[in-house]
Design a protein around this nucleic acid. Structure first.
Lengths: 334, 334
DNA sequence: TTGGGTAAAGAAAACGTTTGAGCAAATCTC
DNA sequence: GAGATTTGCTCAAACGTTTTCTTTACCCAA
């Protein structure tokens, strides 16, 4: 801008106004300035604009892990919607670590971004320490949580109805003729795992099937997955496996394969979160579709709506994304 | 800062210097200011710093697609290394679209970031239009390309030695007793696909095996994958399949399964890029490991090195990441 | 001629920070 | 005790914009 001003022998203010087609400036000058701007390939400096407007048009999304189909779908959705609305997405990974989550929030909450999209790390869920969230909220920075949330924090949220999805799935298995259904789930501190477990229990109770605790396997770390699955097969009999994610289901299915079970005739399998594994497993895996892309889109829209509408009436929304069951080869048709 | 200055009745400059432990300021004042800063929970405004320093400590990474194991590994690596060195990562998705890639670069190259990490979209590779890259380079903004690169652009690069990896893999298959090896690859405009194809051809020639064009299947869109695989099985006989990504290999393996082939006794399978599909396929898939995480780390390091070392001697490096073959169940041991 | 109106442009402040130059007071030196 | 040095602080400019408030110049009517 300075250059253009010097070149045309006008003031910087004039240049600025001319570029913005201000009515204060003569058409003649406007044309000249804009011509020069094009010539010099002038691009307004975003940082200066951010400083002036106190808006960066950036949003941060903090997720526990990116190498995970569900999260990449969410990011895709976020990115798409944010771009559509003129925002950039800064991705931060917490790696399931509380400390990293806190650091990420702190390095972002200093003017670099306008708002947060957050899915809690396992460690944060375990510690139940949410001071960093409270801090940014008090600071007046909008926060939208998705998927892994906490009820203790008041803010906008987008979630899957995990309990209901799990409930429906188990019923589906029962209707297809299964009645000893093993559950591969996470420890209860993972909010979504807990909800899925409770959906499983409720469905069985409603169907009058007794809960056998030995059929419920809680897996904390990925390393113990294969071993625990083997133990399950060694010690229990069952005719279906419900995994709270696709990996658990696929690994169990492999084990069944190795032991010579016919799928789905002798044993059915269902997973959660329809990803690439389910789609290309052998046989293809029936899954609960979580619609991560839509979740991301909705979360981004919620955040940006709040950013652009000043009328903060202090009320927060929680959006529930519907799930659906995608019937593939690993379960018997109803 | 203003508040602290008012409260302590000193100038803003004094506050700034006190916070930076300047020797110009008395220890007494420094202590007081820092105490107040802690009390008010003062955080320096990053935007103002960026404007002043002409450095944002942000880097943009533009990738074609995020729902893809290899790219998420790369992003993980980038994010890790960048964070370690004090940088944030802004993720942009081109969705394999030339237009979106250009837009992404333009919206970022206005002061929002210090440099680019880029993997070209398919459409860009097809069009061979790289004016947007030239533009940012001329503007003096560092650019590091990774994986999907173009030789026409002079900049730092990080690549896989695709041709060699493919060559080695095919030799591996030959040594394990296969001699009619089908290749599932991409059209030649995808740089890595072309290289992998040429590695395949060279290996066969070196082993004195005739190239049968009918065994080379080029797949452009994911939708045509299953159909083309079926046609291959219907019309040709072969004892091994080499897929230039894990999906191709896994889909082919499924088809072989369905047709009753014994794997690997009757037919071997190898994929490229060791992802979740390969690991949990049935049987588990032998793959070429691309070390995406390391590629990401290296690319990030390269970019940041260039950002922080002024001495731009005009020479560019190309780093080649080694690949390795991970022998699993889908191939015969050598 | 003078005053008021208007069109076009410029000056200056602001966003939050850093930093070199400048300045007053305290301390030192001989 | 006068000049020199040191100490501790403030001023002002700078980063690149926008925007409000002047200013200037010109025109027209009284």
């Amino acid at each position: 801008m300075k250059e253009i001003a010097r070149e045309l022998d006008v003031s910087i203010s004039t240049v600025s106004k001319a570029l913005n087609n201000s009515s204060e400036i003569s058409q003649d000058t406007i044309d000249k300035v804009q011509a020069f701007a094009k010539l010099y390939n002038y691009k307004p400096n975003n940082i200066a604009l951010s400083l002036k407007n106190k808006k960066t048009k950036n949003i941060a999304v903090i997720i526990p892990e990116i190498v995970h189909h569900f999260f990449t779908m969410i990011i895709s959705g976020i990115e798409h919607k944010a771009n559509e609305l003129g925002y950039n997405v800064i991705v931060c990974l917490s790696n399931e670590s509380f400390a990293k989550e806190v650091i990420n929030m702190e390095t972002m909450a200093n003017g670099s971004i306008d708002g947060f999209l957050l899915s809690l790390s396992k460690e944060t869920l375990l510690k139940k320490d949410f001071h960093h969230l409270r801090e940014v909220i008090n600071q007046g920075m909008p926060l939208v949580m998705f998927d892994r949330i906490s009820d203790e924090i008041y803010c906008d949220k987008v979630i899957i109805d995990d309990a209901r999805a799990s409930y429906n799935t188990v019923k589906h298995l029962v209707y297809s003729g299964c009645n000893r259904i093993a559950l591969l789930t996470t420890p209860d501190y993972v909010s979504v795992g807990k909800l899925r477990t409770s959906g499983y229990i409720n469905a069985l109770m409603d169907e009058g099937i007794e809960i056998d605790e030995k059929l419920i396997v809680k897996i904390d770390k990925i390393e113990e997955l294969e071993e625990k699955v083997k133990v399950l097969f060694d010690t229990q009999t069952f005719d279906a496996v419900f995994g709270v994610n696709e990996l658990y289901a696929v690994v169990a299915m492999r084990e069944a394969h190795n032991r010579g079970f016919k799928i789905p005739q002798q044993m059915s399998f269902v997973g959660f979160s329809d990803g690439i594994l389910s789609k290309y497993a052998y046989p293809t895996l029936t899954t609960v579709v979580q619609h991560g892309y839509e979740m991301g889109q909705k979360a981004a829209k919620m955040l940006i709506d709040r950013l652009e509408n000043e009328d903060d009436d202090g009320s927060y929304k929680t959006d529930v994304i519907k799930t659906s069951i995608l019937q593939r080869e690993s379960t018997k048709p109803i």
